[in-house]
């Protein structure tokens, strides 16, 4: 496996696409995907944190003692989460109200800590940045997909605009918790049908 920037960037879109290939970060995937707007907001916030925490962790990896590395990663990640939290409150207040609890919970999104431990702590800064951005955008893409399905079926709308025919009865089940689990399970099964190496 050659380690090029393009490879590290594009692997996030299929090969290790979170949360389908990498079964991590399920809570936000289930919780905020009731509408496309929320899904995209969450995805981009996560991408921001992932990109910057990967860059910082990769650049200070030599001075972090092995024993306290997890705690150090968490502090770096939490710092960026607080930054995102404040930025969103200042500029995207409506979305930040809707996402609510799930913005602080980006700290414990296992994707971010997982990438820090598995990738950023072993690779140079430019590769880690590509990895963070790629995985983050892949995650955003998955959230977009799940939320598009749930919003179209669950409330007959896309980005808040009505898209279905008039007599369409919204499938309210889809925007509730059980719908989230089942929708994600079905998508995962469909993605499993496609062999890994076709991308």
């Amino acid at each position: 496996m050659s380690k090029t920037i393009t490879h590290e960037f594009f692997k996030g879109f299929w090969e290790v696409l979170p949360p389908f290939r990498l079964v991590l970060g399920l809570c936000p995937t289930l919780a905020v995907t009731t509408s496309v707007e929320n899904g995209l907001g969450m995805g981009l916030a996560t991408t921001f944190v992932l990109l910057f925490s990967n860059i910082i962790i990769s650049s200070i990896k030599k001075i972090i003692p092995k024993k306290v590395r997890i705690a150090s990663y968490i502090v770096v990640i939490a710092t960026f989460v607080v930054i995102v939290e404040l930025l969103m409150k200042a500029y995207f207040f409506a979305i930040s109200q809707k996402l609510g609890l799930f913005i602080p919970l980006i700290v414990v999104n296992c994707i971010i800590l997982g990438r820090a431990e598995a990738f950023a702590s072993k690779n140079p800064v430019y590769l880690s940045a590509a990895d963070g951005l790629g995985i983050g955008l892949g995650f955003t893409m998955s959230l977009f997909l799940v939320s598009a399905i749930r919003e179209i079926l669950g409330s007959g709308a896309f980005f808040g605009m009505s898209v279905m025919w008039e007599s369409f009865e919204p499938f309210a089940f889809m925007v509730k918790a059980p719908g989230a689990f089942i929708c994600l399970g079905m998508l995962l099964a469909i993605i499993n049908l496609v062999p890994k190496k076709t991308a």
Binding site: V23, P178, G179, A180, F181, I182, L184, G185, M186, L188, A189, I190, N192, L193
Partner: peptide, 13 residues
């Protein structure tokens, strides 16, 4: 295709 996580998610649903 459903083995492992996929069936688990549907069950959770």
């Amino acid at each position: 295709a459903f083995r492992d996580t996929a069936i688990a998610l549907v069950t959770a649903g």
